[in-house]
Design a protein around this nucleic acid. Sequence first.
DNA 1: GAAGCGTATTCCTTGCGGAGAATACGGTTG
DNA 2: CAACCGTATTCTCCGCAAGGAATACGCTTC
Lengths: 126, 126
Amino acid sequence: MELVKIYECLCDPTRLRLLHVLAQGPVCVCHFQAVLGEPQVKISKHLAYLRARGLVESERQGNWVIYALPAKPSRELQANLACLQDCARGNPVFKRDLARLKQIEPSCAWVRAGEPQKAPGQCRGG
Amino acid sequence: MELVKIYECLCDPTRLRLLHVLAQGPVCVCHFQAVLGEPQVKISKHLAYLRARGLVESERQGNWVIYALPAKPSRELQANLACLQDCARGNPVFKRDLARLKQIEPSCAWVRAGEPQKAPGQCRGG
DNA sequence: GAAGCGTATTCCTTGCGGAGAATACGGTTG
DNA sequence: CAACCGTATTCTCCGCAAGGAATACGCTTC
């Protein structure tokens, strides 16, 4: 059952937060670090877990790797992501993540635009 | 996060089938055995797992133990159960479960009605 | 109260996932 | 090519959950 695979991905708080943030748009790993406040290994491994199961897709842009929700998600995935967004409403953890994301957002503009970046080395905090 | 607890419950095929069947109404353990075609230990342990996390409630009626979805489910649980029902549409495994349940249904009537049973020892197959 | 039924719990083995530390990799910059 | 950055992968330890076999429990019946 593919459904089980989806739920296996959803049953970890870190992965839940990653997916919730990704609903706002593509994000690179170092921004995830800043938004979630979790160490790089943790972020990277959970993203690898999600990617291996088709819950996220990744694309390299220079030193950065940009993660995004799949362009063509299955019906089940679509339903569950929507459900997650719904459940996340009002949860302080998820809200805090979004707040931090908004704070960083300006330096993410090129990601949203899909432009190859000319940005300097410093990623965090722009 | 309570959400994670819910997803932990959902990331096993057997539990998914149990919850899906329960959406039709209360069911006793031996009927679960017949519907899912799984051994008693397996059914019982997964139901215990679900009960310990508040995803189902149980009530004893003589020799039988009747399981049901919680009378007052949380918003998150409600949303996810609805999502599950939606995702289950068209899945052959879930459909087969429902078909078998319908077959057994007559002998379950007293369960639905909440009457104390006077039924004879034979549970399976009515 | 002994036998029978439906259900729950224990015991065991096995496998997978989480966490952190250290390290390897790919790409950019001078 | 050397140094550096961002990211990924190993390795090891630990805990938990799944499965099956055997057994214990609660209740009814005679």
